[in-house]
Amino acid sequence: MTKYLPDELAIEILVRLSTKDLARFKCVSKTWRGLINHRGFIELYQNNSPAKFVSFYDKDLYMLDVESKRPAITNPLKLDFPLDQSMIDESTCVLHCDGTLCVTLKNHTFMVWNPSSKQFKILPNPGIYPDSNILGFGYDPVHDDYKVVKFINRRDASTAHVFEFRTGSWRESLRIPNPDWYYRDRRGTLLDQYLYWIAYRSSTDRFILCFNLSTHEYRKFPLSVYNQGVTCSWLGVTSQKLCITEYETCRKEIKISVMEKTGSSWNKIISLSTSSFISVHDHIYDYQVEFVSFTKRNDLVVTFTGYKDNFEMETEERTKTKVFLYKTGDEKFEQVQFCNSLAGLRFLCEFVETPKITNRIFT
């Protein structure tokens, strides 16, 4: 790269810089710009960057760093939301891809927003429709394009509408005639060029809906890890594999399984009793698991919300929220203490900064 600095050492230095610094260093030379824009460097940068979580808190969006050097105490970082704050509330859905967020707004439109560069863009509305059941946001490597997916449900069919940033327009992709299923979560889980959702027809008939961002085709495969006591399920990604977290209310147990290959069987990797998370003096509250997600280090973030039926207490006192970081390596957990109150905190999605060029999105 330079006469005095070996390329390997330069990369080790650059990968530890902020995205703002990298944006400046791209202007140094074509060589530096080519290196920073290279997919290998981008993947290395993402692997070395700490994962944070976007949360809705105190009527705004915040960034939480639960893997900081001092995870026991952390301050939520308020994001500089580019629009009027009234455009979002607790029903807002947030999706993430390559350091860019896709945010649903109250007027049924979408905003794509990069908190680091402060760029944002309002997507055109595909039409006057009710809120979609499921949404997705991801990168299509075949066409080198980012895409937003919105399934619009009508009585006779469910139609996938795909917004292509390359063309700047929505495209009606496919129709699922008379779908008789529902979805566990609106947000699609992105892995490679696929989006995944948990769908179900009944408490005993569940499956995975998989949507290909390149071909705009979908497929279904069974969810064989069903357990009668499961009340909540979440999809996620760990070690570049699709995983599912299931919570059993009766047994107070969290079970996590991974899929080794798309459509193959699930292998259980974690079985965790949640009773060990809650201290004895807190057992007067009925705690339920509200959110489970893996971090970049494959540790587990678990959020509990506890309720107490005591109408003599103030409303805020009848509800408690606790966040724990479970260290999967040594099988230990620690409570993440926040400097502010956790009342109203809601985890939305994982966020990882990236120097990847997103001009395709914001031009």
Rank of each mutant, 00 (worst) to 15 (best):
L5N: 06
P6C: 10
A10T: 15
I13N: 12
L17K: 09
S18R: 06
R24M: 01
V28R: 13
S29M: 08
S29R: 05
G40Y: 00
F41I: 11
I42Y: 03
Q46S: 04
P50D: 11
P50Y: 00
F53T: 04
K59V: 14
Y62Q: 01
D65E: 05
E67N: 00
I73Q: 04
I73N: 05
N75Y: 09
L77G: 00
K78T: 03
L83D: 10
M87I: 07
I88W: 02
E90Q: 06
S91G: 09
C93M: 11
D98E: 13
G99C: 05
V103R: 04
S117G: 03
K118Q: 09
N125F: 12
G127Y: 09
I128N: 12
S132T: 13
K150V: 09
I152N: 09
D156M: 10
S158F: 01
V162D: 13
T167C: 14
R171N: 14
L174E: 09
P179S: 02
D180F: 00
D180R: 13
R187Y: 01
G188K: 10
L195S: 11
I198A: 02
A199P: 03
R201G: 03
I208D: 01
C210M: 01
L213H: 12
L213N: 15
R219Q: 07
Y226A: 01
N227P: 00
W234G: 02
T238H: 00
Q240C: 01
K241F: 12
L242T: 10
E246M: 10
E248C: 05
E248M: 05
T249R: 07
K255L: 15
S257C: 11
T262S: 10
S264E: 13
N267L: 07
I269Q: 08
L272M: 15
S275K: 11
S276P: 04
S276Q: 11
I278M: 08
D282T: 02
D286A: 08
F294L: 06
V301G: 01
K308S: 07
D309I: 11
T315R: 05
E317M: 03
R318S: 10
T321Y: 10
L325C: 09
L325P: 12
K327F: 06
D330F: 03
D330G: 06
E331S: 11
K332G: 14
Q337Y: 08
F338E: 08
F351G: 00
V352W: 00
E353R: 04
K356A: 12
T363A: 09
